[in-house]
Design a protein around this nucleic acid. Structure first.
Length: 504
RNA sequence: GGACGCUUAGCUCAGCUGGUAGAGCAUCUGACUCUUAAUCAGAGGGUCGCGGGUUCGAAUCCCGCAGCGUCUACCA
């Protein structure tokens, strides 16, 4: 296995010509000395945080963690151990441990995992410390840690090797812990409201529930094309038909579209449906839910998130504004009397790109999306959207030209749409047929059959979980709230994967 | 998808108008029994993203490619 000095070095070893070899040699040496470099379970007195909380000098404890720093003083060594909860200093001395175990201890490198048994003590400077009596090798690190002071900064390395980002940037770990809490609170809120969580297919024969390009895959056993879902909507509605009055799913959707600061091809979506409710009921639900989560994240003080011009005040009541009113507010009371040319000029004056083929309602929508929506910082329910932009939604009772929908905008981002769901199967069929012409989506006959079985009137809502986390965490990029964001594949894998195998 | 920018040691970064590459941390050797970015002395480590071109000579200039970033486009 070891390469002869004269034989060519494996290509991937170039990246770490020396240190990795040294660490492998140390692992071998440890093994020779009877200390397996990769250990098994280690019974701990508790986590480092627990041991710190119950600190008592003289008490014997067993702790484990990753060695983060080592300060070698000759006949004694101070080192910092870290686990998922805390950092804790350990102190090893030749006098205490005996010559041989102490010398072996000095084979350790930063990055290694070890288990330690010994008495708790206070150093002269008052730092809580474990004095090592015995220690166990748990796992030898062959690769060095990122720079201890500056950490890892290169964005590409941070995303591709997120484990290093998590090790060296504590605020990153804190942000993902926050995400976990948010997700948990969303669930517990809905459970407390009597909702049942379900899981519906992610692989679907006919992707529906939204207008988006799907990912396509192939199911060999059936020799059939399948699609990763773009939304769970049509399955959740089947469950309304099946008698679930309150149902939600919190899981991944996939859309075959571009990457951006606010778009990842797989993203986490919450969808909830409530029988006998409507869009108004869902407005109340989503407001209560987001306020509940925000309060959990920030238990006291004003409900403000983000900073600078992205600062958001979530304090209720949240504004509700009809689409048309927002337009008039921005473009003047005569906007809807303008002809196409005048409207185009006025929109262009705002710096918008108005293409010649755009009609009045398209120009208006461009104004909404580019000049209005982005400026809505505080939570705003935009209602009564023009039906041509939400073709599958139910129209308002008092005005057939607008739909009974809300779109919740926070910090200029669409966070949550809500609907009074369509339950007329023949109407739904007509609208699907109109869509199938434009999009290449297949008609979901099975779903239409379910509707024909009678679906109760219902309110439905969606919530972009990643974006909610962005707002509550004060992150400006979706990649900062997704552990492993989608990146292009590199021709070569991350360094060292194949080193030593003799391949490549 | 388009425009612009970046890519130098394991990590964080210098490197001028082209003259054969540096620092700190990490690593190795030595000293050191209360340190905490330990300290002190010494050493090793680089296909300068990849491929081509210009030139006596390229990390540096030119072209192509890749990855990443920013803005932009589609979308939640």
């Amino acid at each position: 296995m070891p390469q002869e000095g004269s034989s060519p070095v494996p290509a991937d070893a170039h990246s770490l010509p020396q240190e990795r070899e040294q660490r492998i040699a140390k692992a071998r040496k440890l093994a020779e000395l009877g200390r397996a470099p990769y250990g098994r379970a280690f019974a701990r007195t508790g986590t480092l945080a627990e041991v710190r909380a119950a600190f008592e000098p003289g008490r014997v404890v067993r702790v484990a963690g990753r060695l983060m720093t080592i300060r070698n003083m000759g006949k004694s060594v101070f080192a910092d151990l870290r686990d998922g909860t805390d950092r804790f200093q350990v102190f090893a001395s030749r006098q205490q441990m005996g010559e041989e175990p102490y010398d072996v201890f000095k084979l350790l490198d930063t990055g290694d995992h070890i288990g330690v048994e010994g008495e708790l003590m206070l150093t002269r400077t008052g730092e809580q410390t474990v004095r090592v009596d015995k220690w166990t090798m748990l796992s030898k690190a062959l690769l060095p840690l990122p720079e201890k002071w500056h950490g890892i900064k290169d964005p590409e390395a941070r995303y591709r090797r997120r484990y290093l980002d998590l090790i060296s940037n504590p605020e990153v770990r804190a942000r993902f812990d926050l995400r976990s809490r948010i997700v948990r609170e969303l669930r517990s809120f809905l459970w407390s409201r009597g909702y049942t969580e379900v899981e519906t297919p992610m692989m679907q024969p006919a992707p529906g529930g939204a207008l988006a390009r799907p990912f396509e895959t192939h199911y060999s056993a059936l020799n059939a094309s399948m699609y990763l879902r773009i939304a769970p909507e049509l399955y959740l509605k089947r469950l309304l038909v099946g008698g679930y009055d309150r149902v939600f799913e919190l899981n991944r959707n996939f859309r075959n579209e571009g990457l951006s600061k606010t778009h990842n091809p797989e993203f986490t979506m919450l969808e909830a449906y409530e029988a006998y409710s409507d869009m108004r009921g869902m407005m109340r639900l989503v407001q209560d839910m987001i306020l509940h989560v925000a309060r959990t994240v920030k238990p006291e003080g004003p409900l403000e998130f983000g900073s600078g011009d992205q600062r958001v005040d979530m304090a209720p009541p949240w504004r509700e504004a009809a689409y048309r009113d927002l337009i008039v507010e921005k473009m003047g009371p005569d906007w809807y009397e303008l002809d196409r040319a005048r409207a185009g000029e006025r929109a262009a004056a705002l710096g918008l790109d108005i293409a010649p083929q755009m009609d009045l309602s398209e120009i208006t929508h461009e104004v909404y999306e580019k000049a209005i929506e982005k400026t809505l910082m505080a939570p705003t329910f935009v209602t009564r959207l023009p039906r041509e932009f939400v073709p599958l939604a139910r129209t308002c009772e008092d005005d057939e030209s607008v739909v009974d929908v809300y779109e919740l905008v926070i910090q200029g981002k669409e966070i949550s749409p809500g609907y009074s769901e369509l339950n007329d199967p023949l109407d739904q069929r007509r609208r699907f047929e109109a869509q199938v012409g434009k999009e290449r989506h297949r008609m979901d006959e099975d779903f239409l059959a379910a509707l024909e079985q009678s679906m109760p009137p219902a309110g439905g809502m969606g919530l972009g979980v990643d974006r909610l986390v962005m707002i509550l965490a004060g992150s400006e990029a979706i990649r900062d709230v997704i552990l492993f964001p989608q990146l292009r594949q590199k021709p070569e894998a991350v360094p060292d994967a194949a080193a030593g195998t003799g391949e490549r």
